[in-house]
Design a protein around this nucleic acid. Sequence first.
DNA 1: ATGAATGCAAAAACTTTGCATGACG
DNA 2: CGTCATGCAAAGTTTTTGCATTCAT
Lengths: 140, 140
Amino acid sequence: MEKTVEEGELKRAGLKVTVPRLKILEILEASEPRHMSAEDVYRKLMEAEESIGLATVYRVLTQFESAGLVERHNFDDGHAVYEMASDDHHDHMVDVDTGKVVEFYDERIEALQRSIVEKHGFELVDHNMVLFVRQPSRKK
Amino acid sequence: MEKTVEEGELKRAGLKVTVPRLKILEILEASEPRHMSAEDVYRKLMEAEESIGLATVYRVLTQFESAGLVERHNFDDGHAVYEMASDDHHDHMVDVDTGKVVEFYDERIEALQRSIVEKHGFELVDHNMVLFVRQPSRKK
DNA sequence: ATGAATGCAAAAACTTTGCATGACG
DNA sequence: CGTCATGCAAAGTTTTTGCATTCAT
């Protein structure tokens, strides 16, 4: 039985290697679009004929978040979505017509955020920025 | 019966003037902190001895949002909060230790957002930015 | 009077929890 | 083997909806 990369990731995160955790990790890594709700993950599991409870999906996603493996975002619509944590931080741009999500990074904005926060006497722990956009070609 | 400012606001928004809508509008305008969940509003109504159903609070807040009277935000914790819409746009800074919310505005960030969005071929419709901050005086 | 708004209760959507069973190290 | 993870179902939260009644115009 060969050791997969995912097993290593789980061990490093201090999580016991189990079938649900492996499957969920695989799904998140292969996911397109990159942002998935607990339901989305559960649906993929069902498609893959895995019998894993929805409750477990929620538990595992929460653990992954605590372990820093995934990031949780609250866009607008009121339910959480998860994406694999990457070293490179990025923000999001959501096309309001299509729902498509574009990721981007701009160091000037990051720097401005830090400077604004410091001006108010705080230090920046984290941030969350979503730009709602649209193709300009729409009439009116 | 004298006409209040709030009555005018409701009429202008195309909403019939009713007791629940007036009371909720008053509460939002007087609110401190400025960000209130539906439950918060409902609690205030109860304190004021008004018998208005929670369902009505949700309905009215949704109508106010559609009418542009209030803005809805999803910070981190998963339930929506509302604040009176003001002409001057601003973003939010949340102290992760105390939960306190600071509002701020920085034109340089606004300009950068527009420029980034255009570089991707979109136009900016709206945005949402929350900085999670902390008092630097914490040890470790 | 007539159509819209409200209150109540029931339902829906999303997430968490309790507990007995089963799996990992 | 002891502990931790899982599945299932039940409970919690937050928000929405159906319907009879009340209210604004």
